[in-house]
Design a protein around this nucleic acid. Structure first.
Length: 442
RNA sequence: GCGAGCGUAGCUCAGUCGGUUAGAGCGCUGGUUUGUGGUACCAGAGGUCGUGGGUUCAAUUCCCAUCGCUCGCCCCA
């Protein structure tokens, strides 16, 4: 078998995985800071459930047991393609034991069989955060999402993030007020505004969606609105009236108002957002890295009132967003925009003097580890030059040379060459050196 | 599903208008330096030129097919 990569299934080098883990840790920490509870679901769901929502042409990986009987009729399984469908199922399955509103986060790999391209993979991490209410869910959770996205992303060594907030009720109410019967094709065309430009959108609305010139013009005008709270009045100024539109504008206003304390530009109203309308029913979000908009939305989500269908009278409305960890990292790695300070967790390499004193070196390592300093002992009593070179290649900042069996020795900072007397129970690296960190090269 | 580009050393690539032993840089191993690295110099290892077929006296090179990777489009849950 020839060894080669498999398209769409990225694997990182250790120094990249260090970056990925640091991001995952930081994301998790922030989710918990907002009081969300951890959940992990199985990798598989019943195929029927996966294919149920939305269109049927989803690119799902099916699971097959090689030794299955040809006539086996067991439930067919597939790998989940997002974390929302498994979460909805999980919530219903455990509804009797969960506390509502149920705030959960879930960081897992998902799989999609689509054709890979930059930033789009077949296996990737998603970090999902959702709130599900029983029967109803207050709008304050919609308003909290942009704050959360801002908190998470600004805790990471990333460029500033801009969260675009749209609202399905605004769009749908507007379209109804304009007199459009079927809004789905309109949404799909409008969604391409950034890619194909206003002229193309206007033409497509007429030719493909069958809108009249005036209708197309108004829809286009709506989708081009972007900015702060003033956008609300700008929508009204377009002169379309509909009850649903007013409801949406009210909700949009509340969500935007909540973001008032964030730095200007962190959250903007954007009525050009028209994604994921399979099941979104209210607020929708898309977040972009400022200056790196070309890699696409790194975080997206919205409000869904009808996703979790218990099959009885109970309703479980939810709101949430998904952060695309891998889709973020891939393009950033490609641009060398995110690097670890070293290629290994190791902070101190304990040199091995000679085979007879291996236990002395191991003793030093044990003392350092006991105080939480990542330490390894060099594997063989090679020349010190070789041992230092090994540390240098891995970016290990310190090499320890043993003195006696009591923990005395010398520690060398191989970046500066400075070497000082030290004791293994006392010596401390600077906080910046203890663990590898993630940096954004300027 | 549609389209484009690319497959030569571990990596990045050159090259052969078809011709004897296929090259560079980086990386790797060793040495100069016999127990304190990075620089410099020297030496060395490492290739069925993606795979199959065709044309030819001769194919890594030309042609066809195929597989793989990358990037777009569609789609994006």
């Amino acid at each position: 078998m020839k060894i080669r990569p498999i398209s769409g299934f990225p694997e990182w080098l250790p120094e990249q995985r260090i970056v990925e883990q640091a991001l995952l840790d930081q994301v998790r920490r922030n989710f918990e800071l907002f009081g969300f509870r951890p959940v992990q679901t199985r990798a598989v769901e019943e195929l029927d459930r996966l294919a149920h929502k939305g269109s049927t042409d989803k690119e799902i990986y099916a699971i097959r047991r090689l030794h299955a009987d040809p006539d086996e009729t067991d439930d067919k399984l597939g790998l989940h393609f997002d974390l929302t469908v498994p979460f909805a199922r999980y919530t219903l399955e455990n509804r009797g034991q969960l506390v509502f509103p149920f705030k959960r986060y879930q960081i897992q790999k998902v799989w999609r069989g689509e054709r890979p391209q930059e930033g789009r993979y077949r296996e990737f991490y998603q970090a999902d955060i959702d709130v599900i209410g029983q029967d109803s869910l207050p709008l304050c959770f919609d308003a909290e999402m942009p704050l959360l996205i801002h908190a998470v992303t600004s805790s990471l060594p990333l460029p500033p993030v801009r969260v675009h907030v749209g609202h399905r009720k605004v769009l749908e109410g507007f379209y109804r007020g304009v007199g459009l019967p079927d809004i789905t094709p309109v949404l799909r065309i409008v969604d391409k505004l950034a890619k194909i430009g206003p002229d193309e959108v206007r033409a497509s609305l007429v030719s493909e969606a069958g809108l009249g010139p005036d209708q197309a013009e108004r829809c286009l005008a709506l989708s081009q609105l972007r900015g702060g709270l003033e956008v609300i009045e700008q929508v009204r100024a377009l002169g379309v009236e509909h009850e649903l539109l007013e409801t949406g504008l009210g909700e949009l206003h509340e969500v935007l108002s909540a973001a008032a304390e964030l730095p200007p530009g962190s959250v903007v109203a954007d009525l050009g957002i028209a994604r994921g309308f399979d099941y979104y029913t209210g607020t929708v979000y898309e977040a972009f890295l400022q200056g790196l908009e070309s890699i696409g939305a790194v975080c997206s989500g919205g409000r869904y009132d009808n996703l979790a269908d218990a099959g009885d009278a109970a309703r479980f409305p939810g709101v949430g967003v998904s952060l695309g960890i891998t889709r973020l990292l891939g393009p950033l790695f490609r641009r060398d925009a995110l690097v670890a300070t070293r290629r290994t967790p190791t902070c101190v390499l304990v040199a091995l003097d000679k085979e007879q004193t291996r236990s002395r070196s191991q003793g030093v390592a044990a003392r350092l580890r006991a105080r939480g300093i990542p330490t390894e002992v060099f594997h063989a009593a090679h020349k010190y030059g070789k041992q230092i070179k090994y540390a240098d290649k891995l970016g290990i900042p310190f090499v320890w040379f043993c003195g006696d069996d009591e923990g005395n020795g010398q520690i060398r900072d191989i970046r500066s060459g400075e070497q000082v007397e030290a004791h293994a129970d006392q010596w401390e690296p600077t906080p910046d050196d203890r663990w590898p960190r993630v940096e954004r090269p300027s």
